[in-house]
Design a protein around this nucleic acid. Sequence first.
RNA 1: GGAGAGGUGGCCGAGUGGUCGAAGGCGCACGCUUGGAAAGCGUGUAGGCGGUUCUCCCGUCUCGUGGGUUCGAAUCCCAUCCUCUCCUCCA
Length: 426
Amino acid sequence: MHDIKWIRDNKTLFDKAMARRKLNTIADQALEIDKNRRDCVVELQKLQTQRNEASKTIGNARANGNETMANFSINLVADIKKTIKEGEVRERELTSQLNNFLLQLPNIMFDDVPDGADEDENIEMHKVGTPKKFDFEPKQHFDIGEDLGQMDFEIAAKMSGSRFVVLKSDLARLERALANFMLDLHTQEYDREEVVVPLLVNDHALVGTGQLPKFEEDMFKTTDGKYLISTSEVSLTNLVRETTLAESDLPKRYTSYSYCFRSEAGSAGRDTRGMIRQHQFSKVEMVSITHPDHSEAEQLLMLEAAELVLKRLDLAYRVVKLCSGDTGFGAKRTFDIEVWLPGQNQYREISSVSNCGDFQARRMGAKFKDTEGKTRFLHTLNGSGLAIGRTIVAILENYQTKNGDVEIPKVLQPYMGGKTITNAKK
RNA sequence: GGAGAGGUGGCCGAGUGGUCGAAGGCGCACGCUUGGAAAGCGUGUAGGCGGUUCUCCCGUCUCGUGGGUUCGAAUCCCAUCCUCUCCUCCA
């Protein structure tokens, strides 16, 4: 959410920033509501001052036994109160009108974010590793998984519908192994605090991180008005909602392994086969809460940690900086990590690392007191480290062998208790 | 689901109709003290919004939220959300 005062003082800058998001004449719209609201407030406060003075007069007059004076003021107050009531109603309306408007507006992107319409205009930052060559035609992950007899889309569809999967045996264990491997890395090497979070949250939490009010159709909603989280970024970031931290508390670094739920409304026809795009998937998430001066460095640190996961798994990947058209609502800048998938013969997103600046912090009242005693908004960042489902996909496709087995990456072998995944029934 | 208790400043916690935005403590900041530190002592320390002669000041709102009673409410009444305790149930 944006600071209306900042918009007032930086109208041109703000409009320029919104134009990059394909939004025009936003400042004027916001400032008109703002103007109405402030006029209303000034008017209301005048009346309140009058009322308060008259009330004081009543007390004094009574104390001095001046009943005439007291009665006169009582009548006066009664009149003013009627007008005040109307003013209050109007002020509340205008305030929520302004709020609702501001809540719909996306974050301002950093200048280094390139202009562009969609993912085709993202900029490649660097590549690590080389795409693996096979002396046979590499299969896609769903064929590998089904041939192993450990990945079942049909039975999942029977009980849950499309975009669900059942994993069994070693593939089920692989999910758990990956979660442990990633959590160990983030907690032991990056000093992140491991957290188990609620998967079901209320609407306030989602307004805080920016999923609401604009993207409700992407969420699953329960009959009692709660929502399944679409990422544990929601729960982790909300750990600091409505608090004022001390500067010495910063930074806060969290990590969580959790399931995520997305309705994938609007994704009809995309990645319909396989595990790439599911209604339910798991992810190890990183969230950092930082001092405004440190969020830039923190984003790089987070990216480094996510990359390290892929390096340890010995998977080829590239890092791209998202262009304006692909950068999410709440982000000032996003780096995606795309892993090489031999079966698809292309790089696919496996992690997304975003700096949100104070955008989310404003929405949820997450503040800290700096060393001068001033209260300021925190900066929040989030990144996947990594999406587990897509990591399974990457391992299957990159570590497949000619006979249909899948080798287990070295770092995972202690977690898997073996070196190869095979079809035991063959 | 049944019964009860409670929601106050960064935190803890007093306050049951009128100079209460709110005692006290903790924390924090600054100063004194010290060779230095701790302890001790002193001073200061809520947030939002608005105005402004804009590092000052003024006004206004805020004691979970919304409504009501009253000249006047943190304090009384109603509704609502949340938390806790006991019972019931349950992984």
